[in-house]
Amino acid sequence: MNRLDGRLGFLSALPLVLVLLLSFLAPMAVVALFSVMPQKVFSIANMPDFSAYSLFFSQGYYKSLLWSLGMALTATIILLLICWPLAYAMAKVFGRFGLVLTVAVVMSLFVSENIRLFGWVLTLMKGGLIEGHLRAWTGLSFESPLYDVPIIIFGLVYVYLPFMLFPLAQGIAMVPDDTRQAAYDLGASRSQVLWQIEVPLAAPGIVVGSLLTFVLAAGALAESKILGGQAVIAIADDIETAFTFGQNWPLGSALSMILIVIIGGLALFGVSKVDLDAIMGRKR
């Protein structure tokens, strides 16, 4: 009976498995194939050629990758710090107001990311909303913060905030109030409760939120293009250029593969460390 159930389960899952294979694995296989193609050739049957990968080092594309990863890491850490208290309040303090906050945050996702970023440009640029008003009223002026690395990180933090906030709030909601009170009752200080009880018990939410924001931020290019004015080039920008202006598909594919392997490895590592079932509410 069990074996029959198992087989039926497999059979009913089969269509979806095929769709997933086709839509996720197949494109990746194509990209992997392209990445070992010689340049300026359009046939599939070639000897594998790794010259595109050597460009990654010789032409300095690794710098773009390091910038992307570095900025994504910084943005993730900043997001963790600012979202923890907010998520805590959403999970434990706000009650019904938490819903209002959720709706407000989700609403911002309805507007295209590029439009929101251009909004920031108009706000922050020299002669823009802030500096322009200040100069008109007081005669004081300051340099625009635009077109530099900190503003790109600000953009990443701003755009990916929901992806940290909601998993984190979910993670914090999983910490039973009793365990916090019990630790306190047993003599723990507030910071000891935070580090020894709340952070470990909210770990699934922390890992999921960090992974989401890091993965998305590492592959982001609009922030560095629009807010950063290409002060630094993100790896995603390089990939896009290689495929479009560069017409160098092997290079674009090779850069994609490098990014996919790094981020995929990180994601698999992270997911293997946490109990995803717990955060989806399938346990307890």
């Binding site: 039973p176 009793d178 365990t179 009170q181 019990a182 630790a183 047993l186």
Partner: peptide
Amino acid sequence: NLRPTCMVFQSLALF
């Protein structure tokens, strides 16, 4: 946390 007393919770509140 500064009182020399302690409680066993209904839920036990084990970590």
